[in-house]
Design a protein around this nucleic acid. Structure first.
Lengths: 147, 147
DNA sequence: CAACCACTTTACGTTAACGTCAACGTCGTC
DNA sequence: GACGACGTTGACGTTAACGTAAAGTGGTTG
């Protein structure tokens, strides 16, 4: 991002596994992340992705792949697509954003952050519960083994 | 749970804040956890709660309160009500559960556990992202402050 | 060239988790 | 005894996040 895009052409590469692939089809991405193409198109419709188009078909670059990854991670953490989009949009608008917008972004980030903290605590508590339940289950199992 | 329920009557208690309240109305519980009564009734309908009834009205005890708490925590961690119910049911059926059921329970627990692990990792990664975005935002803000 | 992919758009269907509204019962109190 | 606060059931509505089916496009392969 901060590195000026080099004007060097990619070295003639007969390699079968190009180090850093340029583009992906929707099907490829779908398999990579174990989602359906439908899901990916839906995310685009919701403003989370904006792939290039070659004619009709979508061409996904690294940037898009990263966005999808972040989106799915956000989802696993319980964020709605709308929330995720909000952050992504502000992030994209950052360079020329005014102070008010930036402060708003910082607010949102702080909010997400406290959310994460709470989830960390929830996870710790939940893990204890699981430990507890598992222990009891094992006890009962052992008692069943010796009549 | 392991302590035999004392037969001592609750000491005559003119106290305004009884140490360990016996029961709750649906409205009280709702306010405690910042959900609506509708939500609590829905959870009952889904088999997550089973409060006592005095006539028509529901009476919630400590056990019910704990269940609700666990349920809401599970929700914050992205579990579906069905998943939560599954664990609760198996937990209740544990004492007289057969070996197969118990092993099944252990499987489920292991599953939840790996889910937690993944979420921990997701949270760590997400926190880094947030750190990163926040840093950039602050940079831009400072640059705006000094023209 | 036909057959078969992978991709496209459009549109309607589905599920979970409640919200909302109506219509009613039951207290305490003014 | 009317009123308000709280509780009840029942039924229908809503939203997010996709699933699914229909019908068409574009390339390549036997």
């Amino acid at each position: 991002m901060s590195i000026p895009k080099a004007e060097v052409a990619p070295p003639a590469n007969g390699n079968s596994l190009p180090r850093h692939r340029r583009t992906y089809s929707i099907g490829e991405l779908a398999r990579m992340f174990e989602v359906t193409p439908r899901t990916i198109r839906f995310y685009e419709q919701e403003g989370l992705l904006a792939p290039e188009r070659r004619g009709q078909t979508r061409i996904y670059h690294e940037k898009d792949r990263v966005r999808l990854k972040l989106t799915l991670r956000g989802k696993r953490l319980g964020f709605s697509l709308a929330e995720i989009r909000e952050v992504i949009e502000m992030y994209d608008a950052m360079p020329d954003g005014n102070a008010r917008q930036l402060k708003r972004l910082l607010e949102i980030l702080a909010d997400k952050r406290s959310n994460m903290e709470r989830q960390l605590e929830d996870i710790r508590l939940m893990q204890r519960e699981l430990d507890d339940v598992e222990m009891r289950a094992r006890e009962v199992l052992e008692r069943l083994a010796q009549p």
